[in-house]
């Protein structure tokens, strides 16, 4: 098939080839230009966040001049932030919750995905569909009953509640992705020795 296409390419007259080439070049540069516009639009909020983070409080409350650029850049905000006791605590919380969530959901989802995708038992197809369905349930549908459940467990305003909630939200998605991966990995890896 590709051989036939190659010979067809050779047979195309040279003039046609040149015009096609020019067309391609136009399409290429047009695509770059359009992509550039999109990138600029997409990067506006992060850019503005960076700019604002470099401004001093006086400059922000002064409300003078162009808000898009920083006139007297300062790193004081970042220094203050890292000096704040609270912030260090928050940062530690985030790091800890992330570690717990990632490790718990990886263990659960890798095991389950392997079981569902590779060891096909009776009803595993239905269960896989069920996992996908739970992935489709948005968390805003569940937060009120979960609020009650967390309250009953006495974990309201407790960081540990997040270590329970976040894996729940992440696991169906991870399992779904991992199922695709374990279904595609070669069967010979699983042969018994």
């Amino acid at each position: 098939m590709s051989g036939a296409a190659a010979t067809a390419g050779v047979l195309v007259p040279a003039r046609r080839h040149a015009s096609l080439h020019r067309q391609r070049a136009w399409a290429l540069w047009g695509s770059y230009a359009a992509l550039g516009v999109f990138v600029i639009m997409f990067l506006v909020p992060p850019f503005y966040m960076v700019m604002t983070s470099l401004k001093s409080p006086a400059e922000i409350s002064g409300q003078a001049g162009n808000p898009w650029f920083v006139h007297h850049p300062t790193l004081q905000n970042f220094i203050d932030l890292f000096m704040m006791r609270d912030f260090r605590g928050f940062f530690l919380n985030s790091a800890m919750i992330t570690t717990v969530t990632v490790s718990v959901s990886m263990v659960i989802s890798v095991l389950a995905a392997f079981g569902l995708a590779r060891m096909g038992f009776k009803g595993s197809q239905t269960l896989a569909t069920g996992v996908f369905l739970t992935y489709l349930i948005p968390n805003s549908l569940l937060f009120i009953p979960l609020f009650q459940i967390i309250g009953a467990l006495g974990l309201i305003n407790n960081v540990r509640a997040l270590a329970l909630i976040y894996p729940t939200l992440a696991v169906p998605f991870c399992t779904w992705i991992m199922m695709g991966i374990s279904a595609r990995s070669p069967a010979s890896w699983m042969k018994r020795h």
Binding site: S109, L116, V131, V171, T175
Partner: peptide, 14 residues
């Protein structure tokens, strides 16, 4: 057995 943690989680929290 491998799937049971997942089922427990989904049953309990979804």
């Amino acid at each position: 057995l491998m799937c049971s943690p997942l089922f427990l989680l989904i049953a309990g929290l979804v």
